[in-house]
Amino acid sequence: MSAVLELVRPDLRGFAGYQSARSDAARGEVWLNANEAPWSSVADRGGRNRRYPEPQPAALRDALAALYGCAPDALLLGRGSDEAIDLLVRALCAPGRGAVVVAPPVFGMYAVSARLHGARVLEVPLRDGVAGFAPDLDAMADAALSGAAKLVFLCSPGNPTGERMSTEAVERLAQRLAGRAVVVVDEAYAEFADAPSALVALPRHRNLVVLRTLSKAHALAGARIGCAIADPGLVEVLRACQAPYPLPASCVALGLAALAPASVDATGRRVARVREQRDRLAAALAHLPGVRRVYPSQANFLLVRFDDAGAALRRLRADGIVVRDQRAAPQLGDALRISIGTPAQNRRVLAALGGAAA
């Protein structure tokens, strides 16, 4: 057994999970093994949804593996990154006894999944410095080792803070925690960054997991397509813990269309446009009255501190603009997170905030 599989809950080692009708590799012309309707729904003109979908659609898995440069058996498809987060907590943390390490302010689902499972959440706050927010990876490793945590969650680029971690730093953390904990790097916003993905480190560190999604750069948030890329043995464990049919057939079709060469090229051009607009908006915001600080961002949003964040929020809402209020998050009592929109939408943001002085 590999070192990373020794981190899996003992009661789940060798666990087969639910074997659905589609798990059977049988071939035939008349399929009567899953209690499906014999006719398509009157609402389903294409007839795509009468049958249960593949548990792990091979065509979509292969397309994503090609996009991310990994082997198909190292990739688990799921409902966005959220499902992968939940599966990792369930597979590695003993109910009521396990622990995870997080670095707030950060995406809330790591802590939510842990608490729903009864796992302890060990917090090592991000450090706010001249260059922006950054995780204290040494302190996170110390917390994992002293708290017997099985999972360390990193968000890179960070949400809502926008910082990006170097691959070298991630590798040092994974090496220090080898055999003790799994390091999970959530790269939901990786396409907007100008640094390499942690995916390049996967062959060297079996206790590393990278999460990716089609929700952001590929504009398929409503399709809920994400994946975990990890050691194939760990992928098998996560699959055994997963519901039998995670992705609807209609969503799989959307995902395949989005990963066609012409679509990927178009997405690349749109990502470049978002990056350009992000830099323009950041520069303009920094000169507005009432804006205290605009953080550097490697994602498709900006974190902005205001002299009076409440007043800024009211001005934006009065103009019909909805942004994310971050004031309840640790260290962000004066901050809003603003997603990058179209050029016209970004101009509306600037116009709404133009008189938002304290």
Rank of each mutant, 00 (worst) to 15 (best):
L116H: 14
A188P: 00
E168Q: 14
A148Q: 12
V106H: 12
P135I: 04
S166I: 04
V170I: 15
G132N: 02
V130F: 14
R79M: 11
S156L: 09
A188Y: 13
E171R: 13
L177Y: 05
P104Y: 00
N159C: 13
P95I: 04
A188D: 14
L126F: 01
P104A: 07
A193R: 06
A174T: 07
T161S: 06
L75F: 02
A190Q: 15
A178S: 15
G179N: 09
G80I: 09
S166N: 05
F133H: 09
N159A: 13
A84N: 08
A119E: 00
A198L: 05
D186S: 14
C93M: 06
E83Y: 06
V112W: 13
D186Y: 06
M109F: 12
V100R: 02
V124L: 01
M140R: 08
V183A: 03
V89M: 07
L137A: 01
V200N: 00
N159L: 15
S166W: 04
A174M: 11
S146E: 13
T167Q: 07
R172F: 02
R90W: 01
A141G: 14
A134I: 06
V182T: 03
D138C: 03
L88E: 08
S197L: 03
A111V: 01
L88Y: 10
L151A: 00
V102A: 06
C155W: 07
C93H: 02
L137T: 00
L122A: 05
G98Q: 03
A195N: 01
K150S: 13
P160E: 09
V184D: 09
L137M: 03
A84L: 12
C155H: 15
A181M: 03
D142K: 05
A178I: 08
Y110K: 02
A114L: 00
A134V: 10
A119V: 00
V200Y: 04
T161D: 04
L87S: 06
R127L: 15
I85C: 10
